[in-house]
């Protein structure tokens, strides 16, 4: 019990009155979903080399995040990485691919072209200004192209969003899209440390401390002090 509670505090909870533990189904499902993303093999431009090929190769190794099973068939994929500019001829095809993907489906838009049209925003007669004109995007990863580390940052952000996100009662209701910008001066080494820290601590909540920080805690403490004085 101790091991499970230590590792998976969001899932296994202690009942207020006893040692009984239950699993919240939502949390378990979201954990599984977040750690087994199957990206779709779909790249349009330069970003595809970095986002899907370089990350899939041995140096960066997408497999560390459980997302290395790149699928060529949309039916088997649940993560669409939009890597590159979307032009008017491609937009309906991309929409079709999105609609065929398995639910719940997630979209990461990588690179300036997929975010806003990027360098092709002005004076281009075909480029769609941002993939979010076509499909809803969950995470934006800026860069031209983003480094693989930046993509991993985006993937970790998405995983966190999924873990905190949808419930079975309200499918499709999830967090708003975020920009997963890699902060300045962040190296791969620091990201590794962050990942390690995230894996170790991110989901842990110190209940005593959290409870003490609640606004009502101070009032109750004051009541008790007053009562003991009396």
């Amino acid at each position: 019990m101790g091991v499970a509670l230590g590792k998976l505090p969001g899932i296994v909870e202690r009942f207020p009155g006893g040692a009984m533990a239950i699993t919240r189904l939502d949390a378990a499902i979201n954990l599984a979903r977040s750690n087994s993303l199957w990206p779709l093999m779909f790249g349009t431009k330069c970003c595809a080399i970095e986002m899907l090929m370089a990350t899939g190769a041995s140096h960066h190794d997408l497999a560390r995040f459980g997302a290395e099973v790149a699928r060529a068939s949309v039916r088997q994929a649940d993560l669409m990485v939009i890597a590159g500019a979307i032009v008017k001829k491609m937009a309906p095809r991309m929409r079709l691919l999105y609609e065929q993907m398995a639910e719940p489906r997630y979209v990461i838009a990588t690179g300036s072209c997929a975010i806003s049209g990027g360098p092709f925003m002005y004076n281009s007669y075909t480029v769609v200004r941002g993939a979010d004109e076509v499909v809803p995007v969950d995470v934006y990863v800026p860069g031209c192209p983003p480094r693989p580390e930046a993509f991993f940052w985006g993937l970790l952000t998405l995983q966190r969003m999924i873990r905190e996100g949808e419930t079975i009662r309200e499918p499709g209701i999830r967090r708003k899209p975020v920009m997963a910008a890699l902060p300045e001066d962040v190296s791969l080494h620091e990201i590794r440390a962050e990942i390690r820290a995230a894996l170790a601590n991110e989901n842990v909540i110190d209940v005593t401390q959290a409870a003490n920080q609640k606004p009502w805690a101070r009032k109750v403490r004051e009541w008790i002090q007053r009562a003991s004085l009396r």
Binding site: P119, F120, N123
Partner: peptide, 23 residues
């Protein structure tokens, strides 16, 4: 072909020679 046709040649008509290079 044409699923990534961005019209770079049209855009270059609005850019000077150094700005063409990133494209």
């Amino acid at each position: 072909p044409g699923y990534v046709h961005r019209g770079v040649e049209k855009m270059c008509e609005h850019l000077n020679y150094r700005q063409v290079i990133p494209y």
